[in-house]
């Protein structure tokens, strides 16, 4: 008779693996990637290429030569970080700035803490925030490079992001923005913020494939909508409205792809809601009252650091207890 295996139950295993989950995230990001490349052309391709390549190279070199651990390149997590980092930068970012971002993301935020599963902060956001503080000029250069296809609304536009405009000129400055237009091509901003529809497509894909649960994302949206709604109703001359806040400043990109990062978000659904509400509140506080026009990255980073505490508080409801 052939040799037979003996092991404890269960004897079947799901086909879902870390690799397939990460690959699904990359697939979910594809619509946003395609839109950004179409509109920002070669320079966006360069940013994407440099970001993904350097994240993968750094993951490989550091795990192999510094940590001397089995290489984790195969789990696709470096690719996810690379794509997310690129989508969080303006298409005009010079390649060496992108590389520095990758060093911070993969080298500092991820592998210093022990690699995938151990990092406290979302690597891509850590990279982006580091660049935002260190290279503010590059990070807020919103001149639009030549894309592969053109659109009047996008092409006509140079200068600051919608949120940047509000920061400088108040609500007056954004009068006349067409939200329906913004749903398809958000004017200015990081490459990944271009199209809300593309990001929502990715969200739908992640939900259908059961990669993420909706609680974190929806509670961020809810909090932002309610918070800005209240202020906007009190004084629409000073405060921007809910739709504007949901559609601009990387809120969709952050709430769908970065706040839902497994490693740096709470485990339980209840914890996810608290985490999401926290991100929503912090984002709006920064936008309305802070020095930066845009607050999603900071809000996520701050809430990342609270996750262990949330995990300690929030446990699932146990059977018969």
């Amino acid at each position: 008779m052939n040799k037979i295996l003996v092991s404890p139950s269960p004897h079947l295993h799901t086909k879902t693996s870390t690799k397939s989950l990460m690959r699904d995230v990359v697939i979910a990001l594809l619509p946003a990637v395609v839109v950004s490349v179409l509109f920002y052309g070669w320079s966006e391709l360069l940013v994407l290429g440099v970001s993904v390549a350097s994240c993968m190279l750094l993951e490989f070199l550091i795990t192999k030569y510094m940590l001397k651990k089995p290489c984790t390149l195969g789990d696709w997590s470096a690719v996810v970080t690379g794509v997310l980092l690129a989508l969080n930068l303006p298409a005009t970012t010079p390649w060496w700035v992108v590389f520095i971002g990758a060093v911070v993301a993969v080298g500092v935020a991820k592998l210093t803490f022990g690699g995938l599963g151990q990092n406290v902060f979302n690597p891509a956001i850590a990279g982006r925030v580091f660049l935002l503080i260190s290279f503010p000029t590059y990070m807020t250069d919103w001149t639009k490079p030549a894309g592969f296809i053109s659109n009047a609304a996008v092409d006509a536009y140079t200068g600051a992001t919608p949120l940047g405009l509000v920061g400088e000129g108040g609500v007056e400055a954004i009068k006349g923005l067409d939200y329906l237009d913004m749903l398809f091509w958000n004017i200015g901003g990081s490459a990944g913020e271009l199209s809300a529809i593309a990001l929502l497509l990715g969200f739908a894909y992640l939900l259908v494939r059961r990669v993420i649960r909706p609680y974190i994302t929806l509670s961020i949206w809810g909090t932002v909508a309610v918070f800005s709604g209240i202020f906007w109703l009190i004084n629409p001359e000073v405060y921007t409205d809910p739709a504007f806040n949901l559609l601009t400043g990387g809120l969709l990109l952050g709430s769908i792809f970065m706040a839902t990062d497994y490693v740096t978000s709470p485990m339980s659904n209840m914890g996810g809601v608290i985490f999401g509400v926290g991100i929503g509140l912090l984002t709006m506080l920064i936008r309305y009252f802070g020095a930066y026009p845009e607050g999603v990255s900071f809000a996520i980073l701050i809430m990342n650091s609270v996750v262990p505490l949330i995990n300690k508080w929030c446990h699932a409801k146990k059977y018969g207890r």
């Binding site: 870390t18 995938l116 497994y262 485990m267 339980s268 409801k317 146990k318 059977y319």
Partner: peptide, 20 residues
């Protein structure tokens, strides 16, 4: 491989435990 803290084990547990 490393736990990625996805919480799928806790989501699956019919006793509401947190296997991770």
């Amino acid at each position: 491989s490393a736990c990625i803290r996805c919480g799928k084990c806790a989501e699956a547990c019919p006793m509401g435990l947190e296997p991770f």
